[in-house]
Design a protein around this nucleic acid. Structure first.
Lengths: 219, 219
DNA sequence: GTCTATAAGATGATAGAC
DNA sequence: GTCTATCATCTTATAGAC
C-alpha cells in the first residue's frame, strides 16, 4: 500500500500499473490481485490509509485553532506539509482518474475529500461564528471550496511552479481582506446585511420561484 | 482533433488512446501517428485549438467588463458555459496527465493556463485599479489562483456534484465581501493600509532577509 | 492521405506449483 | 501467501499496399 501510494503520487494514475507498484514494493505483480482484487481497489485502500493518517495528524492541531489568524497560520503549515508529503497530488490523481468512470477511484476521491472537508468545516465554523463574516460564509461550502482549490493549485504547480507560488501568495494577501472586514466589526456587519438584502435576495427569489416554493418573506 | 478533444473531456487521459480517438473520428488509428507523431502530441494540438477558440470567444466579452459586478456576472456565465463545453475538464485532464512527466501534455497544460490567465489578469487589473482592493490584490497571482481553483472545482464536481455546487455557491456569497470592502471605499482603504503595515510587512521582512536583500525601507 | 497488417511491448488477470 | 508461467487484450508505433 505504501508503494501504491508513492507510485500514485510520483507517476500519476497513468503510471500506477500493477507491475510498477509491485516492483516498487519488491514483490510479485500477482499479489496485488490476490490481496486487493484489482489495481484500482489497491489504490483506493492505499489512499484511504494515507488520508486517514494525514487527517488524524491534523485533528489535534485543528482543535487548537481559535482565531482567524490561527487558521491562516495552520492552513499555511498544512498546505506546505501535505504538499511535501504528496497527499494533495495523490488526491488530484484520484479525482482525475475517477473522471474516467472508475468506481473504486471515484470512491477513494469522495472519501478523501469528505475526510478533509469534515475537519476543515468544523474549524471554519468555530472561527467564524462570532465574526461578521458568518453572515455571508457558509462553512460547509467554504470548506469544500478551499479543499477543491488546493487540488487545482497542486495540479497547476506541477505545470508551472513559479506561477503557482505567485497564485498562493496573492491568496494570502487576499486573506488580509477577510481580516479587515473582521476587524471592522459592526460597520462591516451592517454593510454586509445591506448588500445581502439588495443583491442576494433577488437571486434567491429567482431560485425559489424556479423550484416553485412561494413562502418567501414579503418584498 | 475534435474527436481527440471530446475523448479527453469524456474519458479522461487514461481513456484517450489512439484507437479510441480514431474510432470516434471514423478513421484509422495509424493516421494519428502520421499526422501528429504521438497521441500526446495530438492531444496537445487539439487542446490548443479548443483553448484558443474558447479564449477568443471571451475576449470581446472581457473587454466590456467595467465593474466588479460585471466581472462576477461574466465569471458566472463563463464558468457555466465552459463547464458545459467541457473545457475545464479537459484542462484538468491535461494537468493530471502532465504530472506523469509527459512533456507534450505538460506543454499543453501550460499553454491553456497561460492563455486564460493572460485574459483574466487584464480584466481583474482594469476592474480593481480604482478600488481599495488594489492595495492587496496582485492581479497576476489572482488570475492564476482563480483559474487553478476552477480546475480543482471541476475535478471535485466529477466526484461529488452536489458538494461542488455548494462550494461554488459559498464562493459567490463570499464575493459579496469583496463588494462591501469596495463600497466602503476610504474606510476600507485606511484599514487595509494599517493591516498591511502591521502584519504583512513582518512576513516580507523575513522573506527579504532570507534572500539577503537589505534595502527595505526603515521600519 | 488513408488504409491493412503487423511488430514489439505493456496491461490486467488467472492457474497452479510451492 | 508468494511465486512462476501464461492468457487475452490493449497499447504505441511502423512498413508497405493502394
Amino acid at each position: 500500500m505504501t508503494a501504491a501510494a508513492d507510485t500514485l503520487r510520483e507517476e500519476g494514475v497513468a503510471g500506477a500499473s500493477a507491475r510498477v507498484i509491485a516492483a516498487r514494493a519488491g514483490v510479485n505483480q500477482a499479489l496485488i490481485f490476490y490481496h486487493f482484487g484489482t489495481v484500482s481497489q489497491l489504490l483506493e485502500a492505499a489512499s484511504r490509509q494515507a488520508v486517514d493518517a494525514a487527517v488524524d495528524y491534523y485533528r489535534d492541531r485543528f482543535a487548537e485553532v481559535a482565531s482567524l489568524s490561527d487558521l491562516l497560520r495552520t492552513g499555511r503549515e498544512l498546505h506546505q506539509r501535505e504538499r511535501d508529503a504528496g497527499n494533495v497530488a495523490m488526491m488530484a490523481q484520484l479525482m482525475s482518474g475517477a473522471a474516467g468512470r472508475d468506481p473504486a477511484l471515484a470512491s477513494a476521491a469522495r472519501y478523501a475529500m469528505s475526510a478533509w472537508t469534515v475537519e476543515i468545516e468544523s474549524v471554519v465554523q468555530r472561527v467564524l461564528c462570532d465574526s461578521p463574516l458568518a453572515e455571508v460564509a457558509d462553512s460547509a461550502g467554504l470548506a469544500r471550496a478551499v479543499s477543491a482549490s488546493f487540488i487545482g493549485l497542486e495540479l497547476y504547480e506541477g505545470v508551472d511552479p513559479e506561477g503557482a507560488v505567485h497564485a498562493l501568495d496573492s491568496l494570502e494577501q487576499l486573506a488580509v481582506l477577510v481580516d479587515v472586514v473582521n476587524d471592522l466589526g459592526p460597520i462591516a456587519r451592517r454593510a454586509l446585511r445591506a448588500k445581502l438584502n439588495s443583491s442576494s435576495s433577488a437571486r434567491r427569489a429567482e431560485l425559489r420561484s424556479a423550484i416553485s416554493v412561494s413562502d418567501m418573506p414579503g418584498a
